[in-house]
Design a protein around this nucleic acid. Structure first.
Lengths: 251, 251
DNA sequence: GACGTACTTAGTACAATATACAACGTACGG
DNA sequence: CCGTACGTTGTATATTGTACTAAGTACGTC
């Protein structure tokens, strides 16, 4: 070991989320960037080219610095993605619904979240059930919990109900993003797929063995004009989810 | 170009799923493996060490062949994962529930799926809303659709309802797997986390600004003894999901 | 004012990934 | 019996996150 380096106390993820820099002695060259600059650059890339395009090299390039420079601002890529998500949560619009019925309020929460995920498709895949307690997440949680005021639910039930609703929206958005990405990358249209795979499927799929699957599958495909219609899945699921919560709230 | 190579017609994913090899002229050395052997080896690794441990090298090693050999049996890694999923669907147990009420039948479908995902945690993360029409998926779809017989739903509604239920189960299982993996990899227990992050959070989290979040968050944390209890989330969500479908079925 | 030291930046390096390419050997059809 | 189609494998490439090491910068202290 060269010398007893003071072993930099490297900031925790929580400190980073709240931008609580440990007030470093500010020695050495001035920082050319900020955490927000790195996070914003990463979000811009993810929005434009998807999460898989977000590499440390790519971010550094878009900021005009060397890749390793980023590690001065962020401990690693995993933490960066958490920061990106919290920034989204902080910035997303929150529909004001005071005075409306609980069902309308919850529907607005769901639609706000869905819109946010659709605007940033990478976020649906990256987000988790229990995100770290960053400022964006806290503000979001507070706002969304208020939509369950005067429902008669206990505090624990409110948390359960909100988590349930948000998990549905996240999944619906992730599925929508995946379907869209697939449609873009796959050169094949639904019609072309059937022309190329239909004959084989007809030979191999035993309609006598799977009568229900054959009938329902065809009906669903024709009804939506595609194998999977994300918007319909969201609309259908949202009504079911609100009905399910209604059974708890209006019991 | 050396010679007009016959341009091997390389099998489509659908042919592979149904094991419909195009009956090649069988020249050259005999194949030492089968598609199933590759798929089974990959599943074994995924079960034991997680999806990120499933690399072409690792599979090849466990089969005693060179990595590139696998490409004789499988076009690429993406296709292999689809094959792994369909194998799971084909092999999973399906509870027999003829004669029971629709709600019990659907609950059994949900629990079968949840058990399958918990036994193979990687599958929840890998599976998609609209999987390719492999034999496993077809058998699964047929069985699960039957649980919606005599509900009075239209064919399209049956497909919607099933997809809605399955999406819930998949998400719940994926969240459970993620929580479990996090608990294993993170050296820190919940208590340790609070001891190390509590002071900062107390300083930075404005309980006057987020009163509901503070109250509900604490209540939920105490009720479950942890930040997130996957089993409770599944039980709660399943009841809500069935209630939501009941509103459609028993209207 | 000058200097040492803490701190930012950058260059290089490494291990791991999927998979393209081409050489090698095998065994069947003629 | 031999040519050729095909299974197998070694090598190679592009890309990834990030550890390590040097180099340069500017503030706190004398």
């Amino acid at each position: 070991m060269t010398s007893a380096t003071a072993d930099a106390p490297k900031p925790s993820l929580l400190e980073l989320l709240w931008r609580e820099a440990p007030a470093s002695p500010r020695r050495g060259p001035r920082k050319g960037l900020t955490v927000d600059a790195v996070v914003d650059a990463a979000i811009a890339i993810a929005d434009a080219e998807g999460l898989e395009a977000v590499t440390m090299r790519r971010i550094a390039q878009s900021l005009g610095v060397a890749p390793m420079t980023l590690y001065t601002y962020v401990p690693g890529k995993a933490e960066l993605i958490v920061l990106m998500l919290d920034a989204l949560y902080a910035a997303m619009p929150r529909t004001e619904t005071t005075g409306r019925l609980w069902r309308e309020r919850l529907a607005a929460v769901a639609r706000d979240n869905y819109a946010m995920y659709r605007a940033h498709p990478w976020a649906a895949a990256a987000s988790q059930t229990r995100p770290p307690l960053g400022p964006g997440q806290c503000a979001k949680y507070e706002h969304e919990l208020r939509s369950l005021d005067d429902t008669g639910l206990s505090d624990v039930e409110r948390d359960d109900a909100l988590a349930y609703l948000l998990a549905f929206v996240r999944t619906a958005a992730a599925d929508a993003a995946r379907a869209e990405a697939e449609r873009e990358t796959t050169a094949m249209s639904d019609r072309e797929w059937w022309e190329s795979n239909g004959p084989l499927l007809a030979k191999v799929f035993d309609a006598e063995r799977y009568p229900t699957a054959a009938r329902v599958g065809q009906a669903a495909g024709e009804a939506h004009g595609a194998a999977f219609e994300p918007r319909h899945a969201f609309d259908f699921g949202l009504e079911r989810t609100l009905d399910g919560l209604a059974a708890l709230i209006e019991r």
